[in-house]
Nucleic acid binder design. Structure first.
Length: 462
RNA sequence: GGCGACGUAGCCAAGUGGUAAGGCAGAGGUCUGCAAAACCUUUAUCAUGGGUUCGAAUCCCAUCGUCGCCUCCA
């Protein structure tokens, strides 16, 4: 089976071919760290985590780099408001984001470069672009000359004339062309700045990604990812910079995730319609957010509301239902789950090979869940169930779901619960329904669910 | 205004030429003292209108609607 990936550059699904055998270099645009991250950022991170995990499952060695933009207007502004150094602002939110990544069960990247650590490389690259005629300086600013780059607009599918007609560009007389963008910005008072051949200043936003990708992953990479709000201008400009520098195709596959929506609009800091990752994780486990992402197509917008959250919770619960132990070890079931597990695996792989179709992949897993539960109902023992459960756990692991995590409740209470259940069994034997139902109801209030069956009573945490 | 994506059952969501995966919710049933859980059965002609085709949700055109980008943004 061959993996196909939708490439924004060609607007088609294409067979995945790597530059080097069995190795994938992958660069994902990380956040600008000027404020708390929201679940939209988490979505992006989760999408690329799933992609990375699946590539590794397919046997590729993945080298993933995700950057932090730690110098930018908004960070500087925030620093002014709080009257602290902008580095401190960046540091605070980078640290926080790192914690989020761990909480969200995101596999670590090989590198997390930051713009301010790469100033030397950035200056070198800007200088090279000037030398090649792709950039020019004007009063301490350096701009990219987009008309010099023939392919400008190839990623976002626009041509320069269309954009000029539509956009109301501020009159910036220093630019040769209104769409030219800043590679280097001359320092204003009270801004962080670095010495450069053009005087004190700081890098523009787009150049950092080009340079960090070049520096950490080389001139050409397999996959470049990010939110689809970055297609233009950010990624378009990255292509212009990188390809002007190297003369080679920058990234083979451009992969973009859709936006998280809240109340019918894109979740964003500037609009204020957001739910922070912190706020979400206070109420729900990380798997719920991941399930929300998996349940839909990564390229489509994802609605964030009570209903979709609940939906994800229930789907998660359903997957977990298959991991419950057998009712009996007597073995009244002759069959085997090996074949069903194999089938689920095939469905899963075919779906994932089709541009990471996680929704269809989950369908295969739900089928397996039903097979396992069916087998349990007709008396399969733990060993038989495990044939299916093993594959289920493996495949959910490939998409980063943790089915077994919830068992970390306080173990101290368990003997007492067992005792109550035992007492209740005696009550039921003597048909004292009122009292036995009270025990069941009260335990439920405390988060303990009792399930009676002909083979006895099992309990689990809610 | 320009560019792009999307519009499938009550909801979420696959499916891109041969008469609609899966999940949730709903209905009925099995099991149960009653529940819960699980299992079984059941629920759509694919925004609208044209066109191409033996045949379209799937291709083309138009209309309506939603969203994204065009300014910082995952």
């Amino acid at each position: 089976m061959t993996l196909e990936i939708y490439n924004t550059l060609t607007r088609k699904k294409e067979p995945f071919k790597t530059l080097k055998p069995n190795r994938v270099s992958m660069y994902v645009c990380g956040p600008t760290v000027y404020d708390k991250a929201h679940v939209g950022h988490a979505m992006s991170v989760l999408v690329f985590d799933v992609i990375r995990r699946y590539l590794e499952y397919k046997g590729y060695e993945v080298e993933l780099v995700m950057n932090y933009t730690d110098v930018d207007d908004k960070i500087i502004q925030r620093a002014l408001v709080e009257d602290v150094d902008s580095i401190q602002i960046a540091e605070r939110y980078i640290e926080e984001f790192n914690c989020h990544l761990e909480a969200l069960n995101v596999l670590p990247a090989a590198e997390y470069p930051r713009a301010t650590d790469e100033i030397k490389h950035i200056i070198k690259s800007v200088k090279a672009l000037v030398d090649k005629g792709y950039a020019y300086q004007a009063n301490g600013d350096v701009f990219y000359r987009i008309e010099k780059f023939d392919d400008y607009g190839k990623l976002s599918g626009r041509d320069i004339e269309d954009m000029e007609a539509g956009s109301r560009v501020d009159v910036d007389s220093k630019k040769e062309h209104p769409m030219d963008f800043a590679l280097w910005k001359a320092a204003k008072p009270n801004e962080p700045s670095w010495d450069s051949p053009w005087g004190k200043g700081r890098p523009g936003w787009h150049i950092e990604c080009s340079v960090m990708s070049l520096h950490h992953l080389g001139e050409q990479i397999d996959i470049h990812g990010g939110g689809n709000d970055l297609v233009f201008p950010h990624h378009e400009n990255e292509i212009a910079q990188s390809e002007a520098l190297t003369g080679k195709q920058f990234a083979s596959y451009w992969v973009h995730n859709g936006m998280m929506q809240l109340s019918g609009a894109k979740m964003s800091k500037s609009m204020g319609n957001l739910v922070t990752i912190d706020a979400f994780l206070e109420e729900y486990e990380a798997n719920v957010l991941r399930m929300m992402v998996l349940n839909s197509s990564y390229r489509s917008p994802l609605k964030f509301n009570e209903e979709t959250i609940e939906h994800a919770q229930k789907a998660l619960k359903r997957l977990r239902s298959a991991l419950k132990p057998a009712r009996s070890q007597e073995g009244g079931f002759e069959g085997s789950l090996v074949e069903e597990a194999e089938k689920a695996k095939e469905t899963f792989q075919e779906a994932m090979d089709d541009d990471f179709n996680t929704s269809a992949a989950l369908a295969g897993l739900f089928d397996l869940v039903r097979e396992i539960n069916q087998a349990r109902d007709v008396g399969a023992d733990d060993q038989t169930l495990a044939e299916g459960q093993r594959i289920l756990k493996k495949l959910t692991g490939v998409i980063g779901l943790e089915l077994e995590k919830e068992e970390i409740k306080s173990g101290d209470a368990e003997p007492f619960i067992d005792l109550l259940v035992e007492v209740r069994d005696k009550l039921r034997e003597s048909k004292q329904w009122e009292l036995s139902d009270k025990i069941r109801d009260d335990l439920e209030e405390l988060g303990v669910i009792l399930e009676d069956s002909p083979q006895g009573t099992q309990w689990h945490w809610e």
